[in-house]
C-alpha cells in the first residue's frame, strides 16, 4: 500500500447520549464525512477502558477516537472527567511506546452537534492520513535470521551428538 492511497482505520468510541446521537444526527442531516471511523457505542465515555484503546492499536487501528458529552454536560453528571484524565494519561504514555499522541483523540459533541462530530472525524482522518499507517501487528516481526539460527542450533547439535539413537 503506497502512502498516497493509505486510508486510516480508526476505531471510535461514542457515548450513547451525546456523541453517538450526534453521529446519528450527522446521518439524518446527511452531513457527509470521512468513512474512516468505525463506531462502537458505549453508554458513557467513562466506560472507555484504556485497554480498549491499546487493544484497537494492537489489532491494527491507525487511531482511536473517543467522543463524549461536553465537560459539565455528561449524562452521568461528571463521568467524562474520568475520560479526560484517562485520555491525558494515555497521551502521556503512548509516545514512550513510539505512538504519536495525535493518534488518540478526545472530542466533545453534544447530541445536537452532528456537524462538530463530522468535522472532528474529517480532521482526525486527515491528520492520521498524514501520519501514515501504524501497522502494529508488524511491529514484532521476527528477526530475519531467527529461523536460520534455530535451524543451525539443531544442525550443530545433531553433528555434535556422539550417542547413537
Amino acid at each position: 500500500m503506497s502512502d498516497e492511497t493509505f486510508e486510516p482505520k480508526i476505531v471510535g468510541f461514542m457515548c450513547n447520549w451525546c456523541s453517538y446521537t450526534a453521529s446519528d444526527l450527522a446521518g439524518t442531516a446527511r452531513m457527509k464525512h470521512a468513512p474512516n471511523v468505525r463506531i462502537i457505542r458505549v453508554m458513557c465515555s467513562g466506560r472507555v477502558d484504556p485497554t480498549f484503546v491499546l487493544k484497537a492499536f494492537s489489532l491494527g487501528a491507525d487511531a482511536v477516537l473517543i467522543a463524549g458529552c461536553h465537560p459539565g454536560d455528561c449524562h452521568y453528571q461528571n463521568q467524562n472527567y474520568k475520560t479526560i484524565r484517562r485520555h491525558a494519561m494515555l497521551k502521556y504514555i503512548l509516545p514512550q511506546m513510539g505512538i504519536e499522541p495525535e493518534r488518540i483523540r478526545l472530542v466533545w459533541a453534544s447530541a445536537a452537534e452532528g456537524q462538530i462530530l463530522a468535522d472532528a472525524i474529517d480532521k482526525l482522518s486527515e491528520d492520521v492520513r498524514k501520519l501514515g499507517p501504524l501497522r502494529w501487528a508488524d511491529n514484532w516481526e521476527e528477526n530475519g535470521e531467527r529461523l536460520e539460527a534455530l535451524e543451525s542450533i539443531v544442525k550443530e547439535h545433531e553433528e555434535a551428538m556422539e550417542v547413537q539413537p
Binding site: 468505525r38 462502537i40 487493544k55 491494527g60 501487528a137
Partner: peptide, 13 residues
C-alpha cells in the same frame, strides 16, 4: 467490546 473492536478491524487483521 473487545469482540466489537476485533470486528471493526476485520480488514486490518
Amino acid at each position: 467490546i473487545f469482540a466489537e473492536i476485533e470486528g471493526m478491524l476485520f480488514d486490518a487483521m
